[in-house]
């Protein structure tokens, strides 16, 4: 369902984020992308979301070349992909509830659905009591959980989570990973980029290891080896 075909991203002569990366992700997979800081994990995810364009190669989502889609039509692609951003990317002028609701509104959901679904996902990430707080009134981990709630609320085909537990304590981390596993068990493809060794080893799923922008390992039931 997702194909990276000889993709490279060169930001500048001194900064090659991704180099000649080729892999394929099947539908319903749960895949971890691991690597040191600066290895190119976020860049890979940005290329999938067409937030950035590759210097070389192509990225396909459901057989469509993502970077051939006109900018005005990218919304359709992005609504199929729920994204947890490493830097959260919450709308600062909207409350937690409104941030999650925005993703539903943008997808054209009815008011009734928004009224029932948003509290449900906020409950799921354990933030229902902070629903009406603005992002600047939330801690890093709380913002991260709003971002997760927003990513899953539309029940997308794919969930991309860039370091989704980076700001969470072990209990919250465990709960979020269980949540992602559960979502995956309902046939949603999940892609997680992470440094967290315990998560990766506990999952026993496919692991792609990046080093210096190149894939050095791609194992079916992988471990966090660096």
């Amino acid at each position: 369902m997702i194909v990276f075909d000889h993709v490279s991203k060169v930001y500048s002569p001194t900064s090659t984020a991704v180099e000649d990366v080729t892999f394929r992700i099947e539908s319903k997979e749960f895949i971890s992308i691991v690597g040191h800081s600066g290895a190119g994990k976020s860049t890979l995810l940005k290329l999938l979301l067409a937030e950035d364009t590759p210097s070389e190669g192509k990225v396909f989502f459901e057989d469509v070349d993502v970077h051939a889609i006109p900018k005005a039509d990218l919304a359709v692609l992005r609504r199929k992909i729920g994204t947890v951003f490493q830097d959260f990317k919450l709308l600062p002028s909207k409350t937690a509830f409104e941030n999650v609701a925005f993703a539903m509104e943008a997808a054209g959901a009815t008011d009734e659905d928004i009224e029932t679904d948003v509290p449900q996902v906020l409950e799921l990430v354990g933030l229902i009591d902070k629903a009406h707080h603005f992002p600047h009134e939330l801690s890093g981990g709380e913002k991260q959980r709003v971002s997760i709630a927003r990513a899953i609320v539309n029940r997308p085909d794919v969930i991309i989570a860039d370091e989704p537990t980076g700001n969470l304590d072990p209990v919250n981390t465990y709960e979020i990973i269980e949540l992602l596993k559960k979502i995956n068990s309902f046939d949603t493809t999940v892609i997680v980029a992470t440094h967290n060794k315990d998560i990766v080893n506990g999952l026993e799923r496919r692991v792609i290891t990046l080093e210096g922008g190149k894939i050095t390992r791609d194992a079916k039931k992988g471990k966090y080896i660096l």
Binding site: A75, V76, R78, T83, K89, L90, L91, P92, F102, A103
Partner: peptide
């Protein structure tokens, strides 16, 4: 502008 970028990334149409 940051908000506009975020809205684009979470899949909002340009007109919206």
């Amino acid at each position: 502008r940051e908000e506009i970028h975020i809205m684009r990334l979470v899949g909002a149409e340009n007109n919206y």
